[in-house]
Design a protein around this nucleic acid. Structure first.
Lengths: 120, 120
DNA sequence: CCGGATCCGGTCTGATACTG
DNA sequence: CAGTATCAGACCGGATCCGG
């Protein structure tokens, strides 16, 4: 068995759209990675350096999940040492309104929250 | 120590609004409870009966968290056996745009998703 | 170094049984 | 009906290791 003890992936099918969305992205980290991508980050190290401090094993797992879910895609930007960059698909970019709604809410209701750059 | 082994609550303070929001509500169940409340449910048993099947210990824990976060409030609707009902605060009702954005996304990108009643 | 994979201790989840 | 208790197993976070 070679699967990385962190959950391999099978998605539920609920009749509720919100439930489906949450089944896919309803954890502490996935949407933060999407946020980083929207903010222009694209490499593993950049995600890892975000101030929230995602552990690397979780990061690797979430990137895998997001890719399998069709939210991001990766491409090699260098051979030699093979290095990948990640970018949002259309499906991923369409999450921006969700993040904006979350940011709006937090700005109104969580004291002391600033916004990550160009969102408000 | 009598705390119910399911996490007692202390919230982070990140400068990112999205991160704060996710720290509070970024799990599989919390927003589903909010959805149920928006749909008009108000009692423990109604939440427990939702088709997603939240375990009762998780439900109790999330209700506690949401209350401490000021997203819901509970009130007794019967003495004798004391029974509580839950309702959204303004802070909670303001989550509706987030749920709607999620529903929109899922309707577009998750095949086979319907919407929970009056959302689209 | 960078992008992960692996290991490990501790926490949380999920299923279900139980109680007032 | 509205929760609590219990427990195994999944998952998280931190550290470390490794291949290129």
């Amino acid at each position: 068995m070679n699967h990385t003890h962190t959950s391999d992936i099978d998605f539920e099918r609920s009749p509720c759209a919100v439930a489906n969305m949450l089944d896919l992205l309803g954890d502490k980290w996935s949407l933060l990675i999407v946020r980083d991508l929207i903010l222009g980050k694209s490499r593993y190290g950049e995600f890892a350096d975000s101030r929230e401090g995602i552990p690397t094993n979780i990061l690797a797992n979430r990137l895998k999940r997001l890719e399998m879910a069709g939210v991001i895609k990766k491409s090699a930007y260098s051979a030699k040492p093979v290095r990948y960059q990640y970018e949002l698909t259309e499906k991923g970019r369409d999450l921006q309104p969700v993040l904006e709604a979350m940011a709006d809410w937090a700005l109104k209701h969580v004291p002391g929250a600033e916004v990550f750059s160009r969102y408000r």
